[in-house]
């Protein structure tokens, strides 16, 4: 090892950390949950409990289970939208209760379960995707929008108002927005719910390829395991707020 280069690298790393505080904490982990318990106000019982999970970068993870198993709660806890009352949750190495969580979230993408917009929604598909890039200072926003739209097969819909699109088309717009952000972690809540069988398969393959190419972690919550279960690196089964089975390939 070249000893002279050591201090330089160290200085460079310190400079990077100063510029971006999350660089310090982002290593190879996407999500870490340590004995996490989450409850909704007034419910009287935890929605999820005793959750211990670790997802490194570059993995495709499927979380499945019946209705009320706590899948969405788990996903929102990973993002820090819900805070654990016991245990700790880390997103890209950042404690979700820390103020730096906003910076960590900027490196992530999310597709919510309740995405449908009313028929009078006037934002176009292009604007909806662009709104996911508002915090980015890159000049290639338009290229990214068109790349993601082409990937999801919605390039012809870009200038149509979102309200005029079908549920499946709107869901693909949200997926395109998630991909256009070029995230380190993607958290997708029932991303296949409005897609037909053929499109599900295509989208699942797009996500698998994206994980392999970009070293991104994609976490998919879905009560329906097909077709992603065959492509996932890890499958987690949940029931009554607990992880009941973890299967890694």
């Amino acid at each position: 090892m070249d000893r002279r280069s050591r201090p330089k690298r160290h200085e460079e790393s310190r400079e990077n950390s100063r510029r971006n505080p999350t660089t310090r904490t982002i290593r190879r982990e996407a999500i870490r949950l340590e004995d996490v318990w989450v409850a909704y106000a007034g419910s009287g019982k935890p929605a999820i409990r005793e959750i211990n999970l670790f997802f490194p970068l570059g993995k495709l993870v499927l979380i499945t289970g019946p209705n009320g198993a706590g899948k969405t709660t788990l996903l929102e806890t990973c993002l820090g939208l819900l805070k654990p009352y016991r245990g700790k949750a880390f997103l890209l190495g950042v404690d979700t209760k820390s103020r730096k969580i906003l910076e960590a979230r900027r490196k992530c993408s999310y597709v919510p379960q309740d995405f449908m917009k009313p028929p009078y929604e006037s934002y176009t598909a292009r604007q909806a995707i662009e709104l996911g890039l508002v915090l980015e200072n890159t000049p290639d926003k338009n290229t990214r929008v068109e790349w993601a739209a082409k990937l999801l097969g919605i390039e012809d819909l870009l200038d149509r108002p979102l309200g005029t699109l079908s549920g499946g088309q709107q869901q693909r717009v949200y997926l395109a927005r998630a991909l256009a952000r070029k995230p380190l972690v993607m958290l997708l809540d029932e991303p296949f719910s409005s897609l037909d069988r053929e499109t599900r398969k295509t989208v699942a393959e797009i996500l698998r390829n994206y994980v392999d190419r970009e070293n991104t972690t994609v976490i998919i919550v879905s009560h329906d395991t097909a077709p992603i279960i065959e492509l996932a690196d890890t499958t987690i089964w949940m029931n009554e707020g607990k992880v009941v089975k973890v299967e890694a390939k």
């Binding site: 993002l79 939208l81 906003l102 910076e103 960590a104 979230r105 900027r106 490196k107 992530c108 993408s109 999310y110 919510p112 995405f115 934002y123 909806a128 709104l131 996911g132 508002v134 915090l135 952000r181 958290l187």
Partner: peptide, 20 residues
């Protein structure tokens, strides 16, 4: 304008994407 627009479009999604 753009951050506010993102919140108006979908408040929860904007929060999840790191908008304050």
């Amino acid at each position: 304008r753009k951050q506010i627009d993102a919140i108006l479009f979908d408040k929860k999604l904007a929060e999840a994407e790191g908008i304050n």
